[in-house]
Design a protein around this nucleic acid. Structure first.
Lengths: 121, 121
DNA sequence: TAATGTACTATATAAAATGTAAGTATGACT
DNA sequence: AGTCATACTTACATTTTATATAGTACATTA
């Protein structure tokens, strides 16, 4: 995250892939390590930064911030700041973000199934 | 790819997440840069290494090999070697791999929609 | 004899993602 | 004056992923 080099081959490849393959495009957006889990929690309703943090036990504040920023940039979630002290910020899925719901559910089912399959020796 | 350090925090986090959240588990498996595109091509039927390479213009042979290996390890694809010269190797989706089809299609639709949304304005 | 095609492997390096640790602003409260 | 809570930010280190380049085996073909 942090910095990406727009002259790298990697960047160019990602662009080209995303242009041609909407599934690769989607994967770039929701493929982060915590992305789907965050969305999955937000499917239940809006949450504050600290609540998200509690639900994702091992995430660092930095990572949470970065992922939320990226999701916000991609309009998957919206961010509302309340001018209070101490500050309060709420995150909520947007319409397009909420449309990930069936995909997330499908991935969950597939994941369970796949895990079972690998475990049966 | 290549080497992963089983003592790193990152590794531990991934494990923990995958244990609790099947969607994160699934994302780990299909979240590689080329993974979904490869699967998407294989949805149409078995393909040889060189055919895959042709369809993924900028991929290096090394990357293709690594991704295929990972997919094979995860039993998403199967690999058949024909004892010929020059060698011939065919890749094909397994049953569980084929079950990704609706997910891939859903991701494609979502991706298109999302792209359109970001472009308007 | 030399070149060809296929599906790789080996090594090096670059880039991206993630993690660690510390610090910031604010107003209320002690 | 000092502590607290929240939601960050910053600088830096490490780990993971991706690319670049070259090389391998071997029967067939030229």
């Amino acid at each position: 995250m942090t910095e990406i080099k727009e002259t790298s081959t990697n960047f160019a490849n990602k662009q080209a892939l995303a242009d041609e393959c909407p599934e690769a495009y989607a994967s770039n957006i929701i493929g982060g390590q915590w992305t789907l889990v965050i969305c999955s929690w937000l499917l239940e309703g809006k949450l504050r930064f600290s609540e998200l943090k509690k639900n994702l036990p091992n995430i660092t504040e930095r990572m949470l911030t970065l992922q939320l920023r990226k999701l916000e940039e991609n309009k998957i979630i919206s961010r509302t700041v309340y001018a209070e002290v101490p500050p309060r910020v709420e995150y909520e899925l947007t319409a397009i973000g909420y449309e990930l719901k069936p995909i997330i559910k499908a991935l969950e089912n597939w994941g369970e199934k796949h895990k079972a399959l690998l475990e049966e020796t």
